[in-house]
């Protein structure tokens, strides 16, 4: 977090799961660039991820939404920036920006598909529909994350919550989407562009 008690205070709701790791450095760069524009910013860990002491298996989209509402209040956020799956859980009463929002079903499909492909490479047969059913009833480990049934069910039906926030497309940031990169990458030019869009929006 970069807090110099300024009047514009941006809560950043990161992408979910693996995409969060892939965009971490990009978001750190964005926060530094925002600092240069005179904007404070806060990037809280979602419960069950990074430094959080809670187990991942007991998380749900509802719990993450509540945590982001609490974070917005705690940091006295005036604006919000949500990226990708962050759009499923951000406090949409705040004005702000949503970068390439994605449905929960689309994130889930990717995880299930990775499991199906990994099984195939190991000579086993799995199918997405059966894995999803297991996930919804008992929970399931996908891409190293221990999903409880609540999070699977939540993702399966969640739609982006944006309501009047400005949508930012990848093409406005230039370059390749960092959440797609299978290895975490960095792109200072994209971070600078995102910060400039936000600063211009706040000034307007």
């Amino acid at each position: 977090m970069i807090d110099r008690a300024r009047s514009f205070r941006l809560l950043i709701v990161p992408p979910l799961l693996e995409e969060m790791n892939r965009t971490r450095r990009f978001l750190m760069g964005t926060m530094r660039a925002l600092d240069g524009h005179g904007i404070d910013s806060f990037l809280p860990d979602l419960p069950g991820t990074n430094e959080s002491l809670q187990p991942f298996v007991s998380q749900s989209l509802h719990g993450w939404r509540m945590a982001m509402v609490r974070a917005a209040r705690h940091f006295a956020a005036t604006h919000v920036l949500a990226l990708r799956g962050g759009a499923l859980i951000f406090p949409n009463v705040l004005p702000g920006w949503v970068v390439e929002p994605v449905s929960g079903a689309s994130l889930l499909r990717q995880l299930l598909r990775a499991a199906v492909i990994a099984a195939r490479e190991a000579g086993r047969h799995e199918d997405s529909a059966a894995l999803l059913e297991t996930g919804r009833t008992e929970g399931i480990v996908l891409a190293g994350y221990d999903f409880g049934p609540a999070l699977i069910a939540g993702l399966d039906s969640a739609r982006p919550l944006d309501e009047g926030q400005r949508e930012i497309r990848q093409s406005e940031l230039g370059g390749a989407a960092l959440w797609l990169r299978s290895e975490p990458g960095d792109d200072p030019a994209q971070a600078a562009r995102l910060a400039a869009i936000i600063a211009a929006g706040i000034a307007a």
Binding site: R109, Q110, R113, A114, I117, A118, L180
Partner: peptide, 14 residues
């Protein structure tokens, strides 16, 4: 070497 199962799934989504 970059193309593990998660990368393939990401690639297909892309």
């Amino acid at each position: 070497p970059e193309l593990d199962s998660m990368a393939i799934a990401t690639l297909l989504a892309g």
